[in-house]
Simulated scan of single mutants.
Amino acid sequence: MKILIVDDHQLFVDGMRYLLKKLLVTKEVEEAFRAEDAIRILESGKTFDLVLIDLCMPGMSGLSVLRRMRAQGIYTPVVVVSAEEDITKIHETLTSGASGFIPKTHNGEQMRTAFEAVLAGEVYIPPDIEKRLAGYDARRTLDCGSITRRQREVLRLLAQGYSNKQIAATFYLTEHTVKAHVAALLKATKTSSRTECVHVASSRGLL
Rank of each mutant, 00 (worst) to 15 (best):
Glu196Met: 15
Lys179Met: 12
Ala168Val: 14
Glu175Val: 14
Ser163Gly: 13
Leu185Cys: 10
Phe48Lys: 03
Thr195Asn: 13
Ile5His: 00
Asp137Leu: 06
Leu133Arg: 11
Leu55Met: 13
Ile125Asp: 02
Ala117Trp: 07
Thr105Ile: 13
Thr195Pro: 06
Ile53Met: 01
Val6Ala: 10
Lys131Ile: 04
Phe115Ile: 04
Gly121Cys: 08
Lys46Leu: 09
Asp86Glu: 14
Ala134Tyr: 08
Leu55Tyr: 13
Ile147Pro: 02
Arg112Glu: 11
Ala188Cys: 08
Thr95Trp: 06
Tyr124Gln: 03
Ala98Val: 07
Lys46Val: 05
Cys56Ala: 10
Arg156Trp: 03
Val51Cys: 04
Arg40Asn: 15
Leu173Lys: 07
Leu42Met: 10
Phe33Asn: 09
Asp14Ala: 01
Ser82Asp: 05
Thr195Ser: 14
Ser192Asn: 14
Ile39His: 11
Leu42Phe: 01
His106Tyr: 14
Ile53Lys: 00
Leu142Ile: 15
Leu142Ser: 05
Leu142His: 06
Ala134Arg: 14
Met1Ile: 08
Phe33Cys: 08
Ala98Cys: 07
Glu85Trp: 11
Leu119Cys: 06
Lys22Arg: 10
Ile129Val: 12
Gln151Asn: 01
Glu85Ser: 15
Gln160Ser: 13
Asp86His: 15
Thr76Phe: 01
Ile41Asn: 04
Gly161Val: 10
Tyr75Arg: 13
Cys144Gly: 09
Arg204Asn: 14
Ala159Val: 07
Ala134Thr: 11
Gly15Glu: 05
Gly205Lys: 08
Gln72Trp: 06
Thr177Gly: 08
Gln110Met: 05
Leu157Trp: 01
Thr26Trp: 01
Arg70Gly: 02
Thr195Gln: 15
Arg40Ile: 15
Val123Leu: 12
Phe101Leu: 09
Glu175Lys: 13
Thr93Cys: 13
Leu11Tyr: 00
Ala117Ile: 09
His199Thr: 15
Leu20Ala: 09
Leu24Lys: 08
Asp14Ile: 00
Pro77Ile: 03
Lys21Ile: 00
Cys144Gln: 14
Tyr18Asn: 04
Arg112Pro: 01
Ile3Ser: 02
His199Pro: 01
Glu36His: 12
Val182Met: 05
Lys165Val: 14
Ala168Leu: 12
Ala138His: 12
Tyr162Pro: 10
Arg204His: 09
Ala114Cys: 04
Leu50Met: 02
Arg156Lys: 06
Met111Ile: 11
Ser64Thr: 14
Ala138Thr: 09
Val29Asn: 03
Glu28Phe: 04
Leu52Pro: 06
Lys22Pro: 05
Ala98Met: 09
Lys27Arg: 12
Leu186Val: 07
Arg34Ser: 05
Thr88Val: 15
Val25Ser: 13
Pro77Tyr: 02
Val13Phe: 02
Asp137Gly: 07
Ala184Lys: 01
Asp137Asn: 07
Leu23Phe: 00
Leu23Met: 10
Leu66Gly: 08
Gly45Cys: 12
Lys27Phe: 08
Thr93Ile: 15
Thr76Trp: 03
Tyr18Val: 08
Ser146Tyr: 11
Met16Asp: 00
Ala168Thr: 11
Ile129Ala: 04
Asp137Ile: 06
Pro103Lys: 02
Phe48Ile: 03
Lys2Gly: 03
Gly205Pro: 14
Glu31Phe: 00
Gly62Met: 00
Thr177Cys: 03
Thr141Ala: 12
Ile3Phe: 00
Asp7Gly: 04
Glu28Thr: 08
Ala159Pro: 09
